[in-house]
Amino acid sequence: MQSIISYGLAVGAVYALIGITYNVMYSASRVFSFTAGMLGMLGGVLGALFIDKLGINAVVGFVLVLACGALLGIITEIVTVRPVLKSIEQHLYVLSTLAFALMIQQVTAIEWGTDAQPFPQLIPDGAGSILGFDQKFWLPLLACIVTIAGLEFLYRRTLVGRAFLAIAEDSYAARALGLPETRLRMASFAIAGIIGTLAGFTGAQMLLAFFGNQPILNFYGFVPVALGGMGSNRGAVVGGLALGLFQQAANFLVGGIFAAVAVFSVFIVVLLLRPEGLAGAATARRV
Score class of each variant (00 low, 15 high):
residue 219 F to N: 01
residue 200 G to P: 09
residue 145 I to P: 09
residue 214 Q to M: 15
residue 164 F to L: 12
residue 179 L to M: 14
residue 177 L to D: 12
residue 199 A to K: 02
residue 201 F to N: 06
residue 214 Q to D: 14
residue 195 I to W: 03
residue 157 R to L: 15
residue 166 A to R: 02
residue 191 I to M: 15
residue 213 N to H: 11
residue 148 I to F: 08
residue 151 L to I: 08
residue 215 P to A: 14
residue 174 A to D: 09
residue 135 Q to V: 00
residue 151 L to N: 11
residue 209 A to T: 00
residue 165 L to C: 08
residue 179 L to R: 07
residue 135 Q to W: 12
residue 186 M to I: 06
residue 134 D to M: 08
residue 199 A to N: 01
residue 163 A to K: 04
residue 136 K to R: 08
residue 171 S to F: 11
residue 148 I to L: 12
residue 208 L to P: 05
residue 220 Y to G: 01
residue 147 T to L: 04
residue 210 F to D: 15
residue 155 Y to P: 04
residue 194 I to H: 00
residue 146 V to P: 09
residue 227 L to M: 09
residue 212 G to Y: 15
residue 195 I to G: 00
residue 153 F to G: 03
residue 175 R to P: 10
residue 145 I to D: 10
residue 216 I to T: 12
residue 247 Q to K: 05
residue 173 A to C: 07
residue 216 I to C: 04
residue 158 T to Q: 06
residue 219 F to E: 06
residue 244 G to D: 09
residue 153 F to N: 12
residue 171 S to P: 09
residue 155 Y to S: 07
residue 174 A to P: 05
residue 161 G to P: 07
residue 142 L to K: 02
residue 139 L to M: 11
residue 242 A to M: 13
residue 198 L to D: 06
residue 186 M to H: 00
residue 228 G to N: 03
residue 208 L to F: 14
residue 230 M to N: 07
residue 185 R to Y: 11
residue 152 E to G: 07
residue 195 I to T: 00
residue 246 F to P: 05
residue 248 Q to E: 15
residue 220 Y to L: 09
residue 163 A to F: 14
residue 158 T to G: 01
residue 187 A to C: 09
residue 222 F to C: 01
residue 151 L to H: 11
residue 216 I to V: 13
residue 141 L to R: 05
residue 248 Q to F: 15
residue 239 G to R: 01
residue 244 G to Q: 06
residue 169 E to P: 01
residue 141 L to T: 03
residue 235 G to P: 02
residue 181 E to N: 12
residue 235 G to I: 03
residue 242 A to N: 10
residue 156 R to D: 09
residue 232 S to E: 03
residue 141 L to S: 04
residue 205 Q to E: 09
residue 195 I to Y: 05
residue 178 G to H: 03
residue 197 T to H: 12
residue 131 L to Y: 15
residue 246 F to S: 01
residue 233 N to S: 10
residue 157 R to A: 11
residue 163 A to S: 12
residue 172 Y to E: 08
residue 201 F to Y: 13
residue 230 M to L: 14
residue 130 I to C: 09
residue 210 F to Y: 15
residue 136 K to D: 10
residue 238 V to S: 05
residue 230 M to P: 03
residue 157 R to Y: 15
residue 233 N to P: 09
residue 142 L to E: 08
residue 181 E to L: 15
residue 209 A to D: 03
residue 192 A to L: 11
residue 235 G to E: 04
residue 203 G to M: 03
residue 202 T to G: 01
residue 172 Y to P: 00
